[in-house]
Design a protein around this nucleic acid. Structure first.
Lengths: 212, 212
DNA sequence: TCAAATTTTCAGAGTTTTTTGAAATTTGAA
DNA sequence: TTCAAATTTCAAAAAACTCTGAAAATTTGA
C-alpha cells in the first residue's frame, strides 16, 4: 500500500480506538473510503494484513452501522464492499446510528429517572440536573433532525452564513414585534429561561421543568 | 447511593466506554454532575467503591479535559471537585476538547496527505476522497465555532426555528437578488457545488479543490 | 445431490487497558 | 523545619478486548 493511503488508514485505526470503534474496523473503513473500486474480504485482509476472520467480523460491524454497501459482480460469488460516494450521506448515516445507539438510550434512562418522585433533597437536586441535561439533548438532537431535512444547498448556505445568522434572526424578531405587539418579547424571555436551567434557586422544590 | 442516582452514574459509566472514556471517569463525572455540593476524592472513592488511586487518576483525566472545577474550603486541605453549573458551558467545553484532540489532528493528517503529488490513479482518487472529507470537516467545524459565538438566547431561538430557517434564507436570497441583480444566484451555485464534492468526475485529474 | 468456493463462528492466545495497594511525594500548618 | 494529611506514582494483578487459525456453516452451480 502506498504511504499516502497508509497514513490515512493508520490514522483512522487510531482514531477509531478513541471513538469506541476498534482498530480493525477503523482501518477497514478508511481503506474502503479511499478505494477506487469495491473490495472483497480477501483483498481487505491482504492489504491490511489482518486475518480473514478478523476482517469478516469487522465487516459485519460496519454493516450493522450501515456504513458499507454490499454488492456483487457477475460471475463472481464473493461479496464486494464500498462506502457511499456522497460524504454528506456518510455523515448523516453516522449521526443517525449514534442517535439510535447512544442518544436514545440516554434519553430513555433520563426519562425513567425523572418519573421517580424524589425521596430527599439530594434526589431533588439530581433530578433538576438530569432535567437540564434532558432538555439540552432534546433541543440539540431535534434541531439536528430538523436541519437534516434541509436540502444540501440550503444547509450549505446556512453554514456559510455562520454567526451572521444572528442578524437574520433579529430581522424576524422585529417583524414579529411589528405584526403583533408583545408576542415576540414574551416568547424570547421564556426560551432564554429554558436555555439555562441552572438559574433555578436551589432548595425551591426542584423538578420544576415540564414533566415528560 | 440512591437507586435514582445509581442508574444515572452506571449509565454514564457504560456510555463512557463507547466514547473512549473509561468507566471510572464516566462514573466520577456523572456523580459530580448530579451532586449538590463539591466532593473530595475520598468521598468519590467511597461512593463509587473505587480505589483511592483510581479516583486520583480519573480526576486527573477530567482535569485534563477541563471538565471539572477544583476548589478548596477554608480549614480543609482536601481538594473538592465539581462540574460547571451551566450545561451549555459543559457542552462547549466538550466540543472544544474534542476539536483539539480529534478534529485538529485529523485535519493535519489530511493536509499532509493532500500536499503529496499523487503517483498513480489510485492515489489521485484517494486524494479526491480526502479532499472531500477535509472540506466537510472544515465546513462543519468552522460553522460550529461561529455558532458558539452566539449568545445563549440567539442560539436557542435558532434551534427552535429548526428547518423553518429555510424560509428565512429564502428571504435574504430574494433581497440580495433584488439589491444587485445576479450576485445571489452565482453564489448559490458555487456553494452548492462545494457541498457535494463527490460529483467530481473520477479520472478528471483529482485534487481539484482549493489547495490548503 | 454433491463439492467447491466463500463466509461465519468460536475457543483460546495475545495484547491492551483498567484497577489496585503500597510506597513515594507533595502540601500546608504548627 | 517538621510532621501528618493528602495526593500521586508505579509495578503488577485483574479484566476487557482483539485477533487468529481451524472448523463449521452456508451458498451456488453442476
Amino acid at each position: 500500500m502506498s504511504p499516502l493511503i497508509q497514513s490515512f488508514v493508520l490514522h483512522f485505526g487510531e482514531m477509531g480506538s478513541r471513538w469506541g470503534i476498534n482498530r480493525t474496523v477503523g482501518q477497514i473503513y478508511a481503506l474502503l473510503y479511499v478505494s477506487e473500486k469495491p473490495l472483497n474480504a480477501d483483498e481487505i485482509a491482504e492489504e491490511l494484513a489482518f486475518s480473514r476472520s478478523n476482517v469478516s467480523i469487522g465487516l459485519k460491524e460496519l454493516q450493522a452501522w450501515r456504513l458499507v454497501k454490499l454488492q456483487h459482480f457477475p460471475g463472481d460469488r464473493r461479496e464486494y464492499f464500498s462506502t457511499p460516494e456522497d460524504i454528506w450521506a456518510i455523515f448523516r448515516l453516522l449521526a443517525e446510528e449514534r442517535q439510535k445507539r447512544e442518544v436514545e438510550p440516554t434519553l430513555t434512562m433520563l426519562r425513567g429517572a425523572l418519573m421517580e418522585s424524589p425521596a430527599n433533597a439530594a434526589e431533588r437536586h439530581a433530578q433538576a440536573r438530569m432535567q437540564a441535561m434532558y432538555d439540552l439533548i432534546e433541543l440539540i438532537t431535534s434541531w439536528f433532525a430538523e436541519i437534516q431535512k434541509l436540502d444540501a444547498e440550503t444547509l450549505q448556505r446556512l453554514m456559510k452564513l455562520g454567526s451572521r445568522v444572528q442578524k437574520l434572526l433579529q430581522i424576524t424578531q422585529s417583524l414579529a414585534r411589528f405584526t403583533h405587539r408583545d408576542g415576540g418579547d414574551k416568547e424570547a424571555k421564556a426560551e432564554s429561561r429554558a436555555a439555562r436551567p441552572d438559574d433555578d434557586e436551589p432548595g425551591t422544590g426542584g423538578n420544576e421543568g415540564e414533566a415528560r
